[in-house]
């Protein structure tokens, strides 16, 4: 029910806001085939993992992410420094080559989400908009999961 309401809201937003609404399993344009928003523990920032795919013949670049239910979001990349250290760095432009997929996953690319609505619960869907340099705003959905789900959904 919540998902249906969300889809209706997204459709309305598309009609009035001019952005395109793309379902999670869309094809034919830049979008994502998997979207998981991990509900944070103890008010910490949340993590959003997307599999952004570009089935078009043109490369594109993701430049920003925003969520209807959060204050702000930034694309980050966690990098191993070679000495056991992990370093997190902001990604201001993420190229998605033609016919390629950027798979966000723990220990690599992720979206750091600040101020996520704490009412979101596991099983809900959260509206996500990714801005691409070529395709513009693409809006879709991410499933809300917990860190206990990450192992089975994102690490295998």
């Amino acid at each position: 029910m919540k998902r249906r309401i969300g889809i209706a809201l997204a459709a309305a937003a598309a009609a009035f806001g001019g952005c395109r609404v793309v379902p999670v399993d869309q094809t034919g344009t830049v979008g994502w085939t998997r979207g998981y928003l991990v509900k944070p523990a103890a008010g910490s920032p949340a993590a959003l993992y997307l599999w952004i795919t570009n089935p078009t013949a043109h490369g594109d670049t993701a430049t920003a992410v925003r969520l209807a239910a959060a204050d702000s979001a930034q694309i980050h990349r966690t990098m191993a420094m070679g000495n056991g250290m992990e370093h997190m760095t902001p990604v201001v432009a993420l190229p998605i080559p033609a016919h390629d997929t950027a798979r966000f996953a723990p220990g690599g690319l992720h979206v750091m989400v600040f101020g996520l609505d704490s009412a979101l619960a596991r099983g809900d869907s959260a509206q996500v908009t990714v801005t691409f340099a070529r395709a513009g705003d693409v809006t879709g959905w991410a499933h809300v999961i917990t860190y206990a789900d990450v192992d089975s959904l994102l690490l295998r």
């Binding site: 910490s44 949340a46 980050h76």
Partner: peptide, 17 residues
């Protein structure tokens, strides 16, 4: 650190699991 969105909570969740 608890504000870590990525590596730390995944470690702890997998150990707990």
């Amino acid at each position: 650190y608890t504000h870590c969105p990525d590596v730390c909570p995944v470690h702890m969740a997998n150990l707990a699991g």
